[in-house]
Design a protein around this nucleic acid. Sequence first.
DNA 1: TTATATACTAACCTTTTTGTAAGTATGAGT
DNA 2: ACTCATACTTACAAAAAGGTTAGTATATAA
Lengths: 108, 108
Amino acid sequence: MSSIHITARCPIRTTLELVGGKWKLLILFQLFNGPLRLTGLKKSIPDISEKMLIQELKTLADSELVSRKNFGEVPPRVEYTLTEKGKAAMPLIEAMRDFALRYERKME
Amino acid sequence: MSSIHITARCPIRTTLELVGGKWKLLILFQLFNGPLRLTGLKKSIPDISEKMLIQELKTLADSELVSRKNFGEVPPRVEYTLTEKGKAAMPLIEAMRDFALRYERKME
DNA sequence: TTATATACTAACCTTTTTGTAAGTATGAGT
DNA sequence: ACTCATACTTACAAAAAGGTTAGTATATAA
């Protein structure tokens, strides 16, 4: 309730910085079912551009929500996995789903 | 879990459209404590510009998350209140707070 | 030697979002 | 007549986000 104070750095703003934008939550959500490679992610989010996907993955890895494992093979093989911090985003995604469904009066 | 499918219009994207961006959730959050006028909102979110505040309030009113009551007085007096749909955003904000706190390891 | 597969980079552009600064309207009070 | 308070508008500018296209690297297989 009033335990959140709107200041330059409040929890709401922190979360917006971490997972705000058009793609980050969609990417995180895909990774909840297990690690995926770039190609797999691209298939599961058809309308994201390769550039954005790589760029967002890098941001997510920088903030430690996702980890990146390079197998050092040729052709390249790189796997993206949710970290524990990344998994903490699941309740957030569930809350978003609930909100959207309630907004569209499809539940409750 | 896999009950969300990432398509052109999925719950995640719907929510992002409704409350995405830098300000909407901050505004909604302020209104949880009761109706506020423009001036009151401006004070509680010090770094928002007047233009953005009005603009976002209009968007929120258009999507029926906030209702606008004009008292028709001079000088103008207009009150903004959360609708039921708007109140449905509270769990979302709580989930964001939990995520941020967990990210910063301030709670478990 | 040539093609293949995959992750990634770089240059460039367009669109969207956000910000700044100035102005409008008007009844009440002085 | 003049000022005040308040919500809002408008024109413009800056910044951030997102998109497109072409290219790089390289072990392996044909």
